Computed example of a mutant assay.
Amino acid sequence: MDHLACHTPADLKSAAAPDLGAYRWRLLAQGDSWFSNASAKLNAHANLLQELMFAEPTVAVNCAGQSDALAHMVDLEAAPDFVQLLTDATRPAWSGILLSVGGNDLIEAAQTPAHTPDGQDVALHLRLLRRQTEWGPPSQGVARYFSEPGWATYAEYLRTNVKHLLTLRDQGPSAGRPVFMHCYAVPKPRPAGGESSGPWLYPTLKAYAIPSADWLAVSRLMVSHLAQLLKSMAADKENFPGLHVFDSTTVPLALAAPDATGVSGDWHNEIHLNHSGCFKIARAWSEHIQAVLLKQK
């Protein structure tokens, strides 16, 4: 088993450009901060791609960029290299596409406040959490804090954008090739930010006055909703052909300590994995990806 060789679009344009033809499988990657090339994340061994391993020589061109902040993966106007490499008819087909989709968007949706800066109410269908006066009965458990109308808005947004990505795939030489996505792990809301941003969930749950005893369960509820959404999309072969989703919520991870302000358990900060966390999820995801690739002609 060998680690996935990772390059950037800039590497392909350099004088010492890698020979992609030397690899059995050639993958194109785009995604959010779990794929980030930011130096701070690489130093923390927190890039999921770098921990993927395969039985045959495999390379990925990672278009995720240098940002360590939350980013909309589906903002394709900010990802011209990915679109060009995906649709370029002069290039050989990619063996598969790796996508890290929805996690940052989920966090940003959760961060939507109940009121605008000028004090106006934000409609329930535009946020994932409910104000205290909107909470359901205690019998609902932590679902009482959750905005199902807001989730419906988010889910439609994600489905629409993934469909668009699959359409782009089918416009180029990689038409019909497998697209691999992962679910996310359940973060422990805590005061642990990144090098230039965060924490993310911790101040949000405090602002919504959600009891701290329920924070982890609220985090799990949101991540589980996202996992079910992604898996339902993969099961819908008519609308999402060639989509394969790995349920990383099933991989056992060490939770961070509730009040830890830095690296703890399998976590680098509140929402990003450290080396051990990436190692655990990537090893399992590698097997899932390879099983699909081996079935291709």
Rank of each mutant, 00 (worst) to 15 (best):
residue 30 Q to S: 13
residue 32 D to T: 07
residue 32 D to K: 08
residue 33 S to A: 14
residue 33 S to W: 14
residue 34 W to Y: 15
residue 35 F to Q: 00
residue 35 F to P: 00
residue 36 S to F: 10
residue 36 S to D: 07
residue 37 N to K: 07
residue 39 S to V: 12
residue 40 A to D: 10
residue 40 A to R: 07
residue 41 K to W: 04
residue 41 K to L: 14
residue 41 K to D: 06
residue 42 L to S: 07
residue 42 L to Q: 12
residue 42 L to A: 14
residue 43 N to V: 11
residue 44 A to W: 01
residue 44 A to K: 04
residue 45 H to I: 03
residue 45 H to P: 00
residue 45 H to A: 15
residue 46 A to Y: 09
residue 47 N to T: 05
residue 47 N to M: 13
residue 47 N to H: 06
residue 47 N to Q: 12
residue 48 L to T: 10
residue 49 L to K: 01
residue 49 L to W: 03
residue 49 L to Y: 04
residue 50 Q to G: 10
residue 51 E to W: 12
residue 52 L to Q: 03
residue 52 L to E: 06
residue 52 L to S: 09
residue 53 M to N: 10
residue 54 F to D: 00
residue 54 F to T: 00
residue 54 F to S: 01
residue 54 F to A: 03
residue 54 F to E: 00
residue 55 A to K: 12
residue 55 A to R: 14
residue 56 E to F: 14
residue 58 T to Y: 03
residue 58 T to N: 07
residue 61 V to P: 00
residue 63 C to P: 05
residue 64 A to S: 15
residue 64 A to Q: 02
residue 66 Q to C: 11
residue 66 Q to W: 02
residue 68 D to A: 13
residue 71 A to G: 06
residue 71 A to D: 11
residue 72 H to L: 15
residue 72 H to S: 12
residue 72 H to Q: 10
residue 72 H to T: 09
residue 73 M to S: 12
residue 75 D to P: 06
residue 76 L to Q: 13
residue 77 E to K: 15
residue 77 E to R: 15
residue 78 A to T: 08
residue 78 A to L: 13
residue 78 A to P: 08
residue 79 A to M: 09
residue 79 A to W: 01
residue 80 P to E: 15
residue 80 P to Y: 08
residue 82 F to R: 07
residue 83 V to C: 10
residue 83 V to P: 07
residue 84 Q to A: 12
residue 85 L to N: 02
residue 85 L to H: 03
residue 86 L to V: 04
residue 86 L to Y: 01
residue 87 T to D: 02
residue 88 D to N: 15
residue 89 A to N: 11
residue 90 T to M: 02
residue 90 T to E: 06
residue 90 T to V: 13
residue 91 R to D: 04
residue 91 R to Q: 14
residue 92 P to C: 13
residue 93 A to T: 02
residue 94 W to D: 06
residue 96 G to R: 04
residue 96 G to Y: 05
residue 96 G to H: 03
residue 96 G to I: 06
residue 97 I to F: 07
residue 97 I to V: 14
residue 99 L to H: 03
residue 99 L to E: 02
residue 100 S to V: 04
residue 101 V to N: 09
residue 102 G to W: 07
residue 102 G to N: 04
residue 102 G to S: 05
residue 104 N to I: 02
residue 105 D to N: 10
residue 106 L to M: 08
residue 106 L to D: 05
residue 106 L to A: 01
residue 107 I to R: 01
residue 107 I to M: 14
residue 107 I to E: 00
residue 108 E to Q: 13
residue 109 A to W: 10
residue 110 A to K: 02
residue 110 A to I: 15
residue 110 A to F: 08
residue 111 Q to N: 13
residue 112 T to V: 15
residue 112 T to D: 01
residue 112 T to Y: 00
residue 112 T to P: 06
residue 114 A to F: 03
residue 115 H to V: 15
residue 116 T to V: 09
residue 116 T to E: 06
residue 116 T to Q: 10
